[in-house]
């Protein structure tokens, strides 16, 4: 079983409503502040992007459903700050201690913002794990899906693509494995591929026989397509 964030293919959502021409980048000021506070807190160095994503995903199903996008961000940030010992529950209630925090020297400075955003955080790494597949190879995704290291943990294999057969389209080199990195188990880099799946492999009523969905999937999510191996 997955979590509510894993919604690809879900039935019952209404139309997609494009934004009006000239719509502002941030619909409300607090959206902009929520994004900026979250990015700035990344500089404290207490978590990585996979931990941060997982914090938003593991909001309770009730909260995940009722929170708007940036409510998820700010709420997950508050949770991360407490779980990682940066703030206390008393701090959140306005009853915490006064004075500068021990991590204050790490706070992102205005003059450093441009450089930090420009630097980014590449996810490619050297890896001891050799690429097992090449473009054109037939593969099948793991079944059951889910995080193989941590029960209920973070993974980037969506529910809708579990146990599906597809074809390697691109090799991306080796990237940090979110299933490990989101849980403090190390970056565990391994080969990453773009894998193409026929729509008919994923959906009972595909819109068009030639349509495809491509997902970026790590090598440990994949095995050789047994039908091809036996052929």
């Amino acid at each position: 079983m997955s979590r509510l964030h894993d919604m690809g293919g879900r039935i019952g959502d209404g139309p997609v409503v494009p934004d009006p021409v000239g719509a502002p980048v941030f619909e409300n000021d607090w959206h902009a502040r929520a994004l900026a506070v979250t990015l700035a807190c990344g500089s404290l160095g207490k978590w990585n992007i996979d931990v941060s994503r997982h914090a938003r995903e593991r909001l309770s199903p009730k909260d995940y459903t009722r929170f708007s996008y940036y409510e998820k961000w700010i709420s997950a940030l508050a949770d991360l700050l407490v779980e990682n010992g940066v703030l206390t529950r008393e701090d959140l209630q306005g009853q915490g201690g006064e004075g500068l925090h021990v991590l204050a020297s790490k706070a992102l400075k205005a003059e450093a913002v441009a450089a930090v955003l420009a630097k980014g955080g590449p996810a490619n790494r050297d890896s001891d794990i050799a690429a097992a597949y090449r473009p054109g190879d037939r593969v099948k995704t793991r079944h059951p899906g889910g995080n193989a290291l941590v029960d209920g943990g973070h993974t980037r294999l969506p529910d809708y693509a579990i146990g599906a057969c597809g074809e390697i389209l691109l090799q991306h080199g080796a990237h940090v494995l979110p299933d490990s990195n989101a849980h403090g188990l190390g970056e565990a880099p391994e080969p990453l591929y773009a894998v193409a799946f026929k729509a008919a492999e994923l959906w009972p009523h595909p819109e068009h026989p030639n349509d495809e969905v491509v997902l970026d999937l790590w090598q440990s999510y994949l095995q050789s397509d047994p039908e091809e191996a036996g052929a």
Partner: peptide
């Protein structure tokens, strides 16, 4: 607590 600098937030938003 000195963990964020409001001017840095302004800079991120402006970017």
């Amino acid at each position: 607590k000195g963990l964020i600098e409001p001017a840095a937030l302004d800079e991120i938003i402006d970017t």
